[in-house]
Simulated scan of single mutants.
Amino acid sequence: MKLIVLFCLFMFAYAQDKYDGVDIDISEVLSNERLLLAYSKCLINKGPCTPEIKRVKDKIPEILETNCAKCTDRQKYLGKSLVKQVREKHPNIWTDMVSYYDPQGKYQKEFQEFLN
């Protein structure tokens, strides 16, 4: 019984060290220009936010500072896919995001390593 309690406590502590999942269909966002634009405007304080995107937005500074240390493997994979698609197909949105979240370029090297 003690082992089960310890295991449950460990799993609870581990779960607290990772970000909660956000229910966003990345492929839907990338295939819907209007939705992508709305979400990107939210992220740079130029438009309203849905609760899900607001949760993501609130974590972006910490994600950049820690190089996504609290991200699950799935979140890292989805984040990399999303960034690569946006940089390639929507460079203006990418430029706006970088200008907003990293105007001095202090995260560029680590972020590029993360993407590779």
Score class of each variant (00 low, 15 high):
residue 101 Y to V: 01
residue 74 R to K: 15
residue 65 E to Q: 12
residue 50 T to K: 09
residue 94 W to H: 10
residue 40 S to Y: 08
residue 60 I to L: 13
residue 46 K to N: 14
residue 79 G to M: 15
residue 11 M to G: 06
residue 84 K to N: 11
residue 54 K to V: 02
residue 109 K to L: 14
residue 94 W to D: 08
residue 42 C to K: 14
residue 68 C to R: 08
residue 8 C to D: 02
residue 56 V to E: 06
residue 58 D to P: 03
residue 30 L to Q: 15
residue 27 S to E: 14
residue 108 Q to N: 13
residue 17 D to K: 09
residue 97 M to P: 00
residue 62 E to V: 02
residue 86 V to Q: 04
residue 98 V to E: 04
residue 60 I to D: 02
residue 39 Y to V: 12
residue 101 Y to L: 01
residue 41 K to S: 10
residue 91 P to Y: 09
residue 25 D to W: 13
residue 114 F to E: 00
residue 76 K to L: 11
residue 89 K to R: 10
residue 6 L to E: 02
residue 50 T to Y: 07
residue 114 F to C: 08
residue 74 R to C: 09
residue 108 Q to V: 12
residue 20 D to P: 14
residue 28 E to K: 11
residue 35 L to V: 14
residue 114 F to L: 09
residue 62 E to H: 11
residue 39 Y to A: 04
residue 98 V to N: 00
residue 36 L to E: 00
residue 34 R to D: 07
residue 78 L to T: 14
residue 7 F to V: 03
residue 48 P to Y: 03
residue 42 C to R: 09
residue 74 R to Q: 14
residue 29 V to N: 04
residue 113 E to C: 07
residue 19 Y to T: 02
residue 15 A to G: 14
residue 51 P to W: 15
residue 47 G to H: 12
residue 9 L to D: 06
residue 81 S to P: 04
residue 102 D to W: 00
residue 95 T to M: 14
residue 32 N to D: 11
residue 100 Y to A: 11
residue 50 T to F: 05
residue 2 K to D: 07
residue 60 I to Y: 03
residue 43 L to V: 04
residue 104 Q to A: 11
residue 55 R to P: 01
residue 76 K to P: 07
residue 2 K to H: 02
residue 100 Y to L: 06
residue 29 V to P: 07
residue 22 V to Y: 03
residue 87 R to S: 09
residue 4 I to A: 15
residue 4 I to Q: 15
residue 47 G to A: 01
residue 110 E to A: 09
residue 78 L to W: 14
residue 105 G to P: 03
residue 6 L to D: 00
residue 39 Y to P: 00
residue 89 K to Y: 06
residue 38 A to V: 08
residue 24 I to T: 05
residue 63 I to N: 11
residue 50 T to S: 10
residue 56 V to Q: 02
residue 74 R to Y: 15
residue 44 I to L: 06
residue 104 Q to V: 12
residue 73 D to M: 13
residue 106 K to P: 13
residue 87 R to A: 04
residue 55 R to C: 08
residue 73 D to H: 12
residue 55 R to T: 10
residue 102 D to H: 07
residue 21 G to T: 08
residue 29 V to A: 13
residue 36 L to Q: 01
residue 9 L to C: 05
residue 107 Y to A: 00
residue 4 I to F: 13
residue 114 F to G: 14
residue 34 R to M: 15
residue 51 P to T: 13
residue 91 P to C: 05
residue 13 A to V: 07
residue 88 E to Y: 05
residue 85 Q to D: 07
residue 94 W to F: 12
residue 99 S to A: 05
residue 109 K to D: 10
residue 36 L to Y: 11
residue 2 K to P: 01
residue 116 N to G: 12
residue 104 Q to F: 03
residue 33 E to H: 11
residue 51 P to Q: 15
residue 73 D to G: 06
residue 53 I to Q: 01
residue 82 L to F: 09
residue 3 L to H: 12
residue 23 D to G: 06
residue 106 K to N: 14
residue 28 E to G: 09
residue 2 K to S: 05
residue 104 Q to W: 08
residue 16 Q to V: 07
residue 4 I to K: 12
residue 81 S to L: 15
residue 106 K to V: 12
residue 45 N to K: 00
residue 32 N to W: 03
residue 62 E to T: 11
residue 84 K to F: 05
residue 19 Y to N: 06
